[in-house]
Amino acid sequence: MSIVASKAAKSAAHVHVPSSIMEGRPYGGLFFYAVFYLSFIYIPVLFLPLFSFNDSIYIAFPLKGFTTKWYGEMAASNGLIEALKNSLKVGTAVCIISTIFGVLAAKAMTRYRFPAKGPITGLIMLPFVVPGIILGIALLILTYSMGMELSLFTIAVSHVLLAVPFSMLVLISRMEGFDKNLEEASLDLGEGPWRTFWQVTFPLTLPGIVASLLLCFSVSFDEFILAFFLSGNEATLPIYIWSQLRFPSKLPSVLALGACIFVFSCVLVTFSEWLRRRGVQVKTASSV
Protein backbone atom coordinates (compact mmCIF):
# COMPACT_ATOMS: atom_id res chain seq x y z
CA MET A 1 0.00 0.00 0.00
CA SER A 2 2.68 2.47 0.98
CA ILE A 3 4.67 1.59 -2.12
CA VAL A 4 1.71 2.39 -4.27
CA ALA A 5 1.19 5.63 -2.42
CA SER A 6 4.77 6.73 -2.78
CA LYS A 7 4.73 5.85 -6.46
CA ALA A 8 1.57 7.81 -6.96
CA ALA A 9 3.11 10.77 -5.19
CA LYS A 10 6.16 10.54 -7.38
CA SER A 11 4.28 10.43 -10.62
CA ALA A 12 1.98 13.17 -9.47
CA ALA A 13 4.92 15.44 -8.86
CA HIS A 14 6.42 14.26 -12.16
CA VAL A 15 9.87 14.05 -10.71
CA HIS A 16 12.64 12.38 -12.59
CA VAL A 17 13.02 8.73 -11.95
CA PRO A 18 16.04 8.08 -9.79
CA SER A 19 18.92 6.81 -11.81
CA SER A 20 18.74 3.46 -10.05
CA ILE A 21 15.54 2.77 -11.94
CA MET A 22 16.82 4.14 -15.20
CA GLU A 23 19.48 1.88 -16.56
CA GLY A 24 23.10 2.72 -16.03
CA ARG A 25 25.01 5.26 -14.00
CA PRO A 26 24.80 8.95 -14.76
CA TYR A 27 28.21 8.82 -16.39
CA GLY A 28 27.87 5.50 -18.13
CA GLY A 29 28.56 4.61 -21.74
CA LEU A 30 25.94 7.03 -22.94
CA PHE A 31 27.85 9.93 -21.47
CA PHE A 32 30.93 9.03 -23.45
CA TYR A 33 28.82 8.63 -26.53
CA ALA A 34 27.40 12.10 -25.94
CA VAL A 35 30.87 13.58 -25.62
CA PHE A 36 31.92 11.78 -28.79
CA TYR A 37 28.85 13.07 -30.58
CA LEU A 38 29.44 16.64 -29.53
CA SER A 39 33.04 16.32 -30.71
CA PHE A 40 31.77 15.12 -34.07
CA ILE A 41 29.58 18.18 -34.29
CA TYR A 42 32.13 20.72 -33.12
CA ILE A 43 35.63 19.57 -34.10
CA PRO A 44 35.26 19.90 -37.89
CA VAL A 45 34.12 23.47 -37.48
CA LEU A 46 36.93 24.23 -35.05
CA PHE A 47 39.46 23.65 -37.85
CA LEU A 48 38.36 26.99 -39.28
CA PRO A 49 39.69 29.11 -36.41
CA LEU A 50 42.68 26.77 -35.98
CA PHE A 51 44.00 27.25 -39.51
CA SER A 52 43.03 30.89 -39.61
CA PHE A 53 45.91 31.49 -37.19
CA ASN A 54 48.31 29.26 -39.13
CA ASP A 55 51.18 31.00 -40.82
CA SER A 56 50.84 29.26 -44.17
CA ILE A 57 48.87 29.71 -47.34
CA TYR A 58 48.21 25.95 -47.34
CA ILE A 59 45.58 24.54 -45.08
CA ALA A 60 47.53 21.48 -44.05
CA PHE A 61 49.39 19.95 -41.16
CA PRO A 62 51.93 20.44 -39.74
CA LEU A 63 51.05 23.89 -38.41
CA LYS A 64 53.66 26.47 -39.36
CA GLY A 65 53.32 28.99 -36.57
CA PHE A 66 50.98 31.56 -35.17
CA THR A 67 49.92 34.61 -37.14
CA THR A 68 47.07 37.07 -37.26
CA LYS A 69 47.95 38.36 -40.69
CA TRP A 70 44.98 36.58 -42.32
CA TYR A 71 42.69 38.61 -40.13
CA GLY A 72 44.46 41.74 -41.24
CA GLU A 73 44.13 40.71 -44.86
CA MET A 74 40.49 39.95 -44.28
CA ALA A 75 39.81 43.32 -42.69
CA ALA A 76 41.57 45.09 -45.55
CA SER A 77 39.30 43.63 -48.19
CA ASN A 78 36.77 46.13 -49.53
CA GLY A 79 34.48 43.47 -50.87
CA LEU A 80 34.23 41.95 -47.46
CA ILE A 81 33.35 45.19 -45.73
CA GLU A 82 30.67 45.81 -48.32
CA ALA A 83 29.31 42.30 -47.90
CA LEU A 84 29.33 42.70 -44.14
CA LYS A 85 27.38 45.93 -44.40
CA ASN A 86 24.89 44.27 -46.72
CA SER A 87 24.48 41.31 -44.40
CA LEU A 88 23.88 43.62 -41.44
CA LYS A 89 21.31 45.60 -43.41
CA VAL A 90 19.45 42.54 -44.56
CA GLY A 91 19.72 40.82 -41.18
CA THR A 92 18.40 43.81 -39.27
CA ALA A 93 15.46 44.31 -41.61
CA VAL A 94 14.70 40.60 -41.65
CA CYS A 95 14.80 40.13 -37.90
CA ILE A 96 12.51 43.08 -37.20
CA ILE A 97 9.99 42.29 -39.93
CA SER A 98 9.93 38.55 -39.22
CA THR A 99 9.50 39.13 -35.52
CA ILE A 100 6.56 41.45 -36.07
CA PHE A 101 4.94 38.83 -38.30
CA GLY A 102 5.86 36.19 -35.75
CA VAL A 103 4.27 38.09 -32.87
CA LEU A 104 1.04 38.62 -34.81
CA ALA A 105 0.83 35.00 -35.89
CA ALA A 106 1.78 33.61 -32.48
CA LYS A 107 -0.79 35.79 -30.75
CA ALA A 108 -3.47 34.63 -33.18
CA MET A 109 -2.45 30.99 -32.82
CA THR A 110 -2.33 30.96 -29.02
CA ARG A 111 -5.20 33.27 -28.14
CA TYR A 112 -7.98 32.66 -30.62
CA ARG A 113 -10.03 29.75 -31.81
CA PHE A 114 -10.67 29.72 -35.52
CA PRO A 115 -11.24 27.11 -38.18
CA ALA A 116 -8.36 25.64 -40.23
CA LYS A 117 -5.75 26.48 -37.60
CA GLY A 118 -3.82 23.27 -38.29
CA PRO A 119 -3.53 23.70 -42.07
CA ILE A 120 -2.60 27.37 -41.67
CA THR A 121 0.13 26.50 -39.17
CA GLY A 122 1.35 23.89 -41.62
CA LEU A 123 1.45 26.45 -44.42
CA ILE A 124 3.47 28.93 -42.36
CA MET A 125 5.85 26.12 -41.32
CA LEU A 126 6.34 24.95 -44.90
CA PRO A 127 9.63 26.83 -45.50
CA PHE A 128 11.06 24.62 -42.75
CA VAL A 129 10.92 21.56 -44.93
CA VAL A 130 10.63 22.72 -48.52
CA PRO A 131 14.07 22.29 -50.10
CA GLY A 132 15.76 25.69 -50.23
CA ILE A 133 16.45 25.35 -53.93
CA ILE A 134 12.71 25.24 -54.67
CA LEU A 135 12.03 28.43 -52.72
CA GLY A 136 15.08 30.04 -54.30
CA ILE A 137 14.18 29.38 -57.91
CA ALA A 138 10.50 30.08 -57.31
CA LEU A 139 11.31 33.51 -55.88
CA LEU A 140 13.78 34.08 -58.70
CA ILE A 141 11.06 33.38 -61.24
CA LEU A 142 8.63 35.68 -59.40
CA THR A 143 11.18 38.48 -59.31
CA TYR A 144 11.78 38.29 -63.04
CA SER A 145 8.12 37.91 -63.87
CA MET A 146 7.40 41.10 -61.98
CA GLY A 147 10.16 42.83 -63.89
CA MET A 148 12.12 43.47 -60.70
CA GLU A 149 15.89 43.47 -60.32
CA LEU A 150 17.65 41.12 -57.96
CA SER A 151 18.84 43.08 -54.98
CA LEU A 152 19.23 42.99 -51.24
CA PHE A 153 15.47 43.40 -51.14
CA THR A 154 14.85 40.07 -52.87
CA ILE A 155 17.28 38.40 -50.50
CA ALA A 156 15.51 39.95 -47.55
CA VAL A 157 12.12 38.73 -48.76
CA SER A 158 13.40 35.19 -49.02
CA HIS A 159 14.95 35.42 -45.56
CA VAL A 160 11.71 36.69 -44.06
CA LEU A 161 10.08 33.62 -45.56
CA LEU A 162 12.59 31.41 -43.76
CA ALA A 163 12.63 33.34 -40.49
CA VAL A 164 8.90 33.78 -39.88
CA PRO A 165 8.30 30.11 -38.97
CA PHE A 166 11.17 30.23 -36.46
CA SER A 167 9.93 33.45 -34.98
CA MET A 168 6.38 32.17 -34.74
CA LEU A 169 7.48 28.96 -33.01
CA VAL A 170 9.67 30.76 -30.49
CA LEU A 171 6.90 33.20 -29.69
CA ILE A 172 4.15 30.60 -29.57
CA SER A 173 6.03 28.67 -26.92
CA ARG A 174 6.69 31.88 -25.03
CA MET A 175 3.04 32.92 -25.17
CA GLU A 176 1.88 29.48 -24.19
CA GLY A 177 4.31 29.75 -21.29
CA PHE A 178 2.18 32.29 -19.51
CA ASP A 179 -1.46 32.17 -18.69
CA LYS A 180 -4.00 33.48 -21.16
CA ASN A 181 -5.92 34.60 -18.08
CA LEU A 182 -3.36 37.34 -17.47
CA GLU A 183 -4.44 39.16 -20.59
CA GLU A 184 -8.07 38.54 -19.74
CA ALA A 185 -7.47 39.87 -16.23
CA SER A 186 -6.11 43.06 -17.71
CA LEU A 187 -9.15 43.47 -19.96
CA ASP A 188 -11.36 42.63 -17.03
CA LEU A 189 -9.72 45.37 -14.98
CA GLY A 190 -10.61 47.93 -17.58
CA GLU A 191 -7.62 48.19 -19.90
CA GLY A 192 -8.36 47.94 -23.59
CA PRO A 193 -6.74 45.45 -25.97
CA TRP A 194 -4.00 47.86 -27.09
CA ARG A 195 -2.86 48.76 -23.57
CA THR A 196 -3.24 45.15 -22.50
CA PHE A 197 -0.79 44.19 -25.20
CA TRP A 198 1.80 46.73 -24.07
CA GLN A 199 1.29 46.27 -20.34
CA VAL A 200 0.93 42.51 -20.09
CA THR A 201 1.62 40.62 -23.30
CA PHE A 202 4.68 42.55 -24.39
CA PRO A 203 6.65 42.53 -21.11
CA LEU A 204 5.87 38.85 -20.56
CA THR A 205 6.81 37.94 -24.13
CA LEU A 206 9.90 40.15 -24.19
CA PRO A 207 12.51 37.39 -23.70
CA GLY A 208 10.88 35.52 -26.58
CA ILE A 209 10.84 38.63 -28.71
CA VAL A 210 14.53 39.27 -28.09
CA ALA A 211 15.31 35.60 -28.77
CA SER A 212 13.30 35.79 -31.97
CA LEU A 213 15.13 38.93 -33.11
CA LEU A 214 18.50 37.29 -32.52
CA LEU A 215 17.55 33.99 -34.13
CA CYS A 216 16.01 35.62 -37.18
CA PHE A 217 19.08 37.78 -37.53
CA SER A 218 21.37 34.79 -37.41
CA VAL A 219 19.17 32.86 -39.84
CA SER A 220 19.54 35.69 -42.32
CA PHE A 221 23.19 36.34 -41.53
CA ASP A 222 24.21 32.75 -42.26
CA GLU A 223 21.79 31.99 -45.07
CA PHE A 224 23.34 31.00 -48.37
CA ILE A 225 21.11 28.70 -50.41
CA LEU A 226 18.37 31.26 -51.15
CA ALA A 227 20.68 34.25 -51.30
CA PHE A 228 22.71 32.45 -53.97
CA PHE A 229 19.75 32.59 -56.37
CA LEU A 230 18.46 35.95 -55.32
CA SER A 231 21.51 38.16 -54.98
CA GLY A 232 22.14 40.84 -57.54
CA ASN A 233 25.26 42.96 -57.59
CA GLU A 234 25.40 43.34 -53.85
CA ALA A 235 26.63 40.26 -52.04
CA THR A 236 25.94 39.20 -48.50
CA LEU A 237 28.72 37.62 -46.44
CA PRO A 238 27.98 33.98 -47.36
CA ILE A 239 27.79 34.95 -51.03
CA TYR A 240 31.09 36.74 -50.67
CA ILE A 241 32.66 33.68 -49.05
CA TRP A 242 31.37 31.50 -51.87
CA SER A 243 32.88 33.82 -54.46
CA GLN A 244 36.24 33.71 -52.67
CA LEU A 245 36.37 29.92 -52.48
CA ARG A 246 37.56 29.78 -56.09
CA PHE A 247 40.82 31.51 -55.24
CA PRO A 248 43.18 29.27 -53.26
CA SER A 249 45.25 32.26 -52.23
CA LYS A 250 42.22 33.78 -50.52
CA LEU A 251 41.46 30.66 -48.50
CA PRO A 252 43.27 31.63 -45.29
CA SER A 253 41.50 34.96 -45.07
CA VAL A 254 38.19 33.23 -45.83
CA LEU A 255 38.99 30.96 -42.91
CA ALA A 256 39.56 33.99 -40.74
CA LEU A 257 36.25 35.40 -41.85
CA GLY A 258 34.53 32.06 -41.26
CA ALA A 259 35.99 31.88 -37.76
CA CYS A 260 34.70 35.36 -36.98
CA ILE A 261 31.24 34.57 -38.31
CA PHE A 262 31.17 31.33 -36.39
CA VAL A 263 32.10 32.97 -33.11
CA PHE A 264 29.65 35.80 -33.72
CA SER A 265 26.79 33.43 -34.50
CA CYS A 266 27.61 31.26 -31.51
CA VAL A 267 27.45 34.20 -29.14
CA LEU A 268 24.23 35.44 -30.69
CA VAL A 269 22.55 32.07 -30.68
CA THR A 270 23.75 31.03 -27.24
CA PHE A 271 22.33 34.20 -25.78
CA SER A 272 18.99 33.84 -27.53
CA GLU A 273 18.70 30.14 -26.73
CA TRP A 274 19.47 30.88 -23.12
CA LEU A 275 16.82 33.59 -23.12
CA ARG A 276 14.07 31.54 -24.55
CA ARG A 277 14.76 28.22 -22.90
CA ARG A 278 15.05 29.56 -19.40
CA GLY A 279 12.20 28.23 -17.33
CA VAL A 280 10.29 26.64 -20.19
CA GLN A 281 12.84 24.11 -21.31
CA VAL A 282 10.71 21.26 -22.54
CA LYS A 283 7.99 23.43 -23.93
CA THR A 284 10.38 25.58 -25.84
CA ALA A 285 12.42 22.69 -27.08
CA SER A 286 9.33 21.36 -28.78
CA SER A 287 9.31 24.39 -30.97
CA VAL A 288 12.32 23.43 -33.01
Binding site: L48, D222, F224, V254, C266, V269
Partner: peptide, 16 residues
Protein backbone atom coordinates in the same frame (compact mmCIF):
# COMPACT_ATOMS: atom_id res chain seq x y z
CA UNK B 1 24.04 26.30 -31.48
CA UNK B 2 25.56 24.51 -34.49
CA UNK B 3 22.01 24.17 -35.81
CA UNK B 4 21.91 27.92 -36.30
CA UNK B 5 25.41 28.55 -37.57
CA UNK B 6 26.33 28.84 -41.18
CA UNK B 7 25.55 25.81 -43.28
CA UNK B 8 28.05 26.98 -45.85
CA UNK B 9 30.84 27.13 -43.27
CA UNK B 10 30.08 23.64 -41.99
CA UNK B 11 30.26 22.26 -45.52
CA UNK B 12 33.37 24.29 -46.20
CA UNK B 13 34.99 22.86 -43.06
CA UNK B 14 34.68 19.39 -44.54
CA UNK B 15 36.22 20.52 -47.78
CA UNK B 16 39.39 21.50 -45.95
Amino acid sequence: VPFWTSFLLRVFAWKI
